[in-house]
């Protein structure tokens, strides 16, 4: 393993200090928490920074809280495994809980954070697709200000986001799920259990009393330069009863949205087929959950 280039490591004890540091070193700074993405990237020379600011000692930043009126707030340093086992996440956000249960390895889930998974901006990021489906947004804070960015505006390309170097993800805000809603996430990869997703599909679906779709978001992972919203499929489902044929057509619409490439993990052709399959399965499960049916 090549040695890492030298850098200064900062462990501020307050958010103010952290913001001061990232502002001062904005020319060459990385924010770190678990380091599960950043450290290997720095070792490989893919990420370079003279300064690394660790958030692990910033108090209160790892909180996960849920209120029916306000939804879910995931603190910027909340670990993936803590999110996975949080009872409110499991109850109200099964797609996110599933992603946090299945992604990477147990060691990485215990170290890595959901905010870090988003900040790393991999097209295959497992938490991105469910959070997009839930309509989540990020609270970005810098010295003297904060802004809220919808997650779907956050990613700009592989490894790229709208966040500025002096900004820190303070929290992820996820709206509370409406009544008669269901959500799900599924992924496939070559190694069945411990792997990066070759394709992932998440959806959140909301039905009216007649079983018609009144809200839907579908997100696709690892089939484009960023996680993608499948708007064409969403539009197709709105105001409709999501029966089998419609779901098959929605799946096909998802395939049209996807922009998969051939790479070492899968061929574009296979990825397209998986988008169809997973989208149908995910939407069917969402429908069953929204109708209160047993969704096994």
């Amino acid at each position: 393993m090549p040695n890492m280039p030298r850098f200064n490591f900062h462990r501020p004890g307050t958010m103010e200090e952290a913001l001061d540091l990232v502002s001062r070193f904005r020319a060459s700074v990385k924010v770190m928490c678990g380091g599960t993405d950043l450290v290997p990237k720095m070792r490989a020379g893919v990420a370079v920074a003279e300064n690394v600011v660790s958030l692990t000692r910033v108090p209160g930043l790892s909180t996960i809280s849920y209120r029916d009126d306000d939804g879910l707030v995931i603190g910027g340093t909340a670990r993936i495994s803590d999110v996975a086992r949080h009872p409110d996440v499991r109850r109200h956000y099964p797609a996110l809980a599933y992603a946090c249960d299945k992604m990477a390895t147990v060691q990485i889930r215990n170290m890595g954070t959901v905010a870090g998974n988003l900040a790393n901006a991999a097209p295959s990021a497992d938490t991105a697709a469910p959070l997009l489906a839930y309509g989540a947004s990020l609270v970005l804070v810098e010295r003297g200000g904060r802004r809220q960015v919808p997650l779907e505006d956050f990613f700009t390309g592989p490894g790229l986001t709208v966040a500025e170097p002096m900004e820190i993800i303070e929290a992820i805000r996820v709206p509370a799920p409406p009544l008669r809603s269901g959500s799900a996430y599924l992924r496939v990869s070559a190694r069945s259990k411990v792997d990066i997703a070759a394709v992932g599909v998440a959806a959140a679906l909301n039905l009216d009393l007649e079983g018609r779709v009144i809200g839907v978001r579908i997100a696709l992972a690892a089939v484009g330069p960023t996680p993608l919203r499948a708007r064409q499929a969403e539009d197709m489902l709105m105001e409709q009863i999501p029966d089998h044929d419609l779901l098959a057509r929605a799946g096909a619409a998802c395939v049209r949205t996807a922009k998969p490439i051939d790479d070492v993990r899968a061929s574009a052709n296979f990825r397209r087929a998986m988008v169809q399959t997973l989208a149908q399965r995910v939407l069917a499960r969402c429908g069953r959950l929204a109708r209160g049916e047993d969704a096994q």
Partner: peptide, 11 residues
Amino acid sequence: FLDYKMPAAED
């Protein structure tokens, strides 16, 4: 090992 798909203990 991210892309060389050796089965893991869970598999």
